[in-house]
Design a protein around this nucleic acid. Structure first.
Length: 788
RNA sequence: GGCCUCGUGCUGGAAUUGGUAGACAGUCUGGACUUAAAAUCCAGUGGGAUUUAUUCCCGUGGCGGUUCGAGUCCGCCCGAGGCUACCA
């Protein structure tokens, strides 16, 4: 029975050239795709381009070109390089996210999301790069500075589009358990990112007026220990209580601290009533309270929280112990018996939490609450080179999301990128339209979508890349999830979480039957290389380094070179190996072998000259082997070949590709050592088929010369009978320690074996004059003799 | 600080998932071939001891435990890497 196999590698950003990391990624996928084809499966193995994004704009400015031209040129170049690698890809499925026939359907999806209330617009504090005049994503802010400009990032209140990923927080979390074929590490990272905490929401009444302050806590059991309230500077209560001038002064002070772990606060002219005890507690604005988590307000319990403790010490606030512990161990945030809390005394943490929530509920001052760390996904980007958001604004400030009939909103080509900020803002002709529905003047949205939106659904578009709808629901139901998705761990959270969200959202909008986009995720390791630098601390490319008299020298200048540790290949350290050059010198097969030998594919692979050379030697050796004249073939040889088929298949399926290489060596070591040559026998056919996924060129070449055909048929069925090895070397232990092995056959009679081994000198020596207490015979595996 | 992953020869790594530790490869050493180098082929390559053998002992970061038996399971400790970081 044939089945479908959708094998996908994360599509590349067209930066200009394929690098070794890509090669490793695609070789791993390609071996799988080729194997499944040989098994007779319907294999989908597409390739495309994650083609929108800021680097294109930067390059356009730098090289005086256009992002589109730059991107298209890169795509062509990289496609040529991929084709040189001879990967078995479905090029007819190719897509590029910057093409109209992709992004116009993304605009449709945006409208779907909007209509389903999964896309919305709101004012939000965003990271604003004052030099580039653009919003930056959180991950583009490094140590509070813009990654490109190095300018200190400001918080700015802007109206932004969001996707309601928080609607799916619980499902995204729970469904991780269903993803049995995902690395545990990635799932953990996603769990942490979603950050579900169970606790309580408590209403604190403001003493001076009738307002309330909501506070989220995971430790309501410590409520008696609350001695202050702290809120974020952006909390609405701040605006109500203080004037603008003072607020900006505090903001400035907060911004000026050197160590951002230092805690400072400002006491507000208001207080809160403690919800249980009859007392007032002060309210502070504190720099350590996050406005993006919980309610942006906390109650401080200094005795049982490190941050609150530090803050209380600094501002001489009372510290009340409510969990039993030694005074020296304060702040103590562990479990324990509640004290100094009349309604909770004697209870342990869990019970105390339950009890206090009961009391809160009864008095209507609080309830249990689940809080998530994950925020809604801000998708607006003030950049030109992205998918235009299909919305328009009227002069009165109202806006309308377009209807699908009004699509596409095409990204204009003639822009001036030299100005500051989003080039679309200056495109008056493009921006200004007359709304066909109202006949009113309107302006197009100039923000474009985060490029992570582009990559959140491309795996669906591949199934029908020319369809005049975003996707074909029937095909999605039939062909998704992707069976094997291969890529770098750096996408563990963002891309993979966004894609999971998209799949679930689309499922709900279109009534699809798919819950998760990727059934199996395989994260390949990076490729490392030694680093080299001159005494002047200049990085030097490996190909410029030669070894002479045990010293490393730079080829042309003869400068002395110092060798550094192996690190991820990077342009900045120049420790890169160019795939093109390797392919030219060693060929595709040797490159493929090296990509999977030595290290398991999910771990680092260190590039070495010896490694690639010995891979080439293996390829040559196999080619030479098949030139030798045929010899007599024994059953034992048949068995070895059968074992090879079984092992290599198992190892391909388990992504243990390094072991596939070992299987190949083991087989040819056996054949050559015993001078068994198979030439044009049936066994050769089987071997060549099994070599094909790993060494396609070589396998084809030998097949053609021996059998006059490139294709030798499907993956061979493993003959189980030949796999069973009857003869075994049974390990014999005395007192659990190996003494010798005994050659016998499977299914031996225990007493016969014992009789024979008692005659062996080694055993005799050990058990002479001793009493045999017990014989442990694990049939066909081991015999252990226990003596006294 | 929190969470996760992982500690096996000189190196990358195997080990049927609790049953012969070190497969396979690289490196290095010696030998064959060669005018020479590369390639190729042969032998050796965890540590130690000795009577040099079809020998013995030790050995999977450390200590302890479970078991007839532990690289594998459990507890504590040490170390490395990754992610995340004032998440209330």
């Amino acid at each position: 029975m044939t089945s479908k196999k959708y094998i996908l590698e994360m599509f590349p950003y067209p930066s200009g050239n394929i690098h070794m990391g890509h090669v490793r990624n695609y070789v791993i996928g390609d071996i799988n795709a080729r194997y499944h084809k040989l098994k007779g499966d319907d294999v989908i193995h597409p390739m495309g381009w994650d083609a929108f994004g800021l680097p294109a704009e930067n390059a356009a400015i730098q090289f005086n070109t256009h992002p589109q031209d730059w991107t298209m040129k890169n795509i062509q170049n990289m496609k040529d390089q991929l084709q040189k690698l001879d990967l078995d890809l479905n090029w007819d499925r190719e897509l590029a996210t910057c093409n109209q026939d992709y992004y116009r359907y993304q605009q449709e999806l945006f409208i779907d999301f909007y209509n389903a209330d999964l896309a919305y617009k709101k004012d939000a504090l965003v990271n604003w790069d004052p030099v580039d005049q653009t919003v930056l994503a959180n991950e583009q802010v490094i140590d509070g500075k813009g990654w490109r400009t190095g300018a200190k990032v400001e918080k700015k209140n802007l109206s932004q589009w969001f996707f309601r990923i928080t609607n799916y927080a619980d499902e995204l979390l729970n469904d991780l358990d269903k993803l049995k074929l995902w690395p545990e590490k990635v799932k953990t990272m996603q769990r942490n990112w979603i950050g579900k905490s169970i606790g309580a929401e408590i209403k604190f009444k403001i003493h001076e007026n009738s307002d309330y302050l909501n506070i989220f806590t995971t430790r309501p059991d410590t409520i008696y220990g609350a001695t202050f309230i702290a809120v974020s500077i952006n909390h609405p209560i701040v605006k109500k209580s203080l004037d603008e001038k003072l607020i900006s002064k505090i903001k400035k002070e907060f911004g000026e601290i050197d160590n951002d772990k230092d805690k400072i606060g400002f006491q507000m002219p208001i207080h809160c009533d403690h919800p249980i005890i009859d007392k007032k507690i002060p309210v502070f604005i504190a720099n350590f309270v996050l406005d993006t988590y919980g309610e942006g307000a906390i109650f401080g319990c200094p005795a049982h929280d490190e941050r609150d403790y530090e803050f209380a010490k600094k501002y001489s606030l009372p510290i009340i112990k409510v969990i039993e512990c030694k005074d020296e161990s304060l702040p103590y945030n562990g479990d324990g018996v509640v004290i100094n809390s009349p309604l909770l005394d004697g209870l342990k943490k869990d019970n105390a939490i339950k009890e206090i929530i009961k009391i809160f509920k009864k008095d209507n001052i609080g309830k249990e609450k689940i809080n998530y760390k994950i925020r809604d996904w801000g998708v607006s980007r003030q950049r030109y080179w992205g998918c235009p958001i299909p919305a328009i604004y009227y002069e009165d400030g109202t806006y309308r999301v377009l209807d699908k009939e009004e699509l596409p909103v095409i990204l204009p080509y003639d822009v001036n990128l030299k100005g500051k900020g989003n080039a679309l803002l200056n495109m008056e002709d493009w921006r200004k339209i007359v709304c066909p529905k109202t006949n009113k003047v309107a302006y197009r949205e100039t923000d474009t979508l985060d490029t992570f939106v582009d990559s959140s659904w491309y795996y669906i578009r591949f199934l029908d890349n020319k369809l005049e709808k975003p996707f074909n629901a029937e095909k999605v139901n039939k062909l998704l999830p992707v069976d094997k998705y291969i890529g770098g761990i750096e996408h563990a959270i963002l891309h993979l979480l966004y894609s999971r969200f998209f799949m679930k959202a689309l499922r709900d909008i279109y009534d699809l039957k798919v819950d998760e986009p990727f059934k199996q995720l395989f994260t390949q390791g990076m490729i490392t290389h030694k680093t080299y630098r001159t005494e002047k601390n200049e990085w030097v490319m490996p190909k410029e380094v030669i070894s002479k008299d045990k010293k490393l020298l730079r080829i042309h200048t003869k400068e002395l070179i110092e060798e550094g540790p192996s690190e991820k290949m990077s342009k900045s350290k120049k420790n890169v190996i160019e795939p093109d050059e390797i392919l030219d010198s060693y060929g595709i097969d040797a490159t493929r072998i090296f990509m999977i030998s030595d290290s398991p594919p999910d771990r680092e692979l260190e590039w070495t000259d010896e490694g690639i050379q010995s891979s080439k030697n293996l390829v040559n050796r196999i080619e030479r082997y098949f030139l030798k004249e045929k010899t007599v073939i024994s059953t034992e040889t048949e068995k070895k070949v059968e074992k090879f088929i079984y092992d290599i298949e198992k190892n391909i399926l388990e992504f243990s590709l390094n072991k596939c290489v070992a299987d190949i060596y083991t087989l040819f070591n056996y054949l050559e050592k015993n001078q068994i040559y198979l030439y044009d026998s049936n066994l050769s056919k089987k071997i060549l088929i099994c070599l094909f996924p790993v060494l396609p060129r070589l396998s084809k070449k030998i097949s053609t010369s021996l059998f006059k055909s490139e294709k030798l048929g499907n993956w061979p069925e493993v003959n189980d009978e030949l796999l069973v090895e009857n003869k075994i070397n049974l390990p014999i232990q005395v007192q659990g320690k190996l003494v010798t092995t005994f050659e016998t056959v499977k299914g031996y009679e225990e007493k016969d074996v014992l009789k024979s081994i008692y005659q062996l000198d080694k055993i005799k020596n050990k058990i002479e004059n001793k009493k045999i207490l017990r014989i442990i015979n694990v049939q066909d595996k081991i015999i252990n003799i226990i003596i006294k």
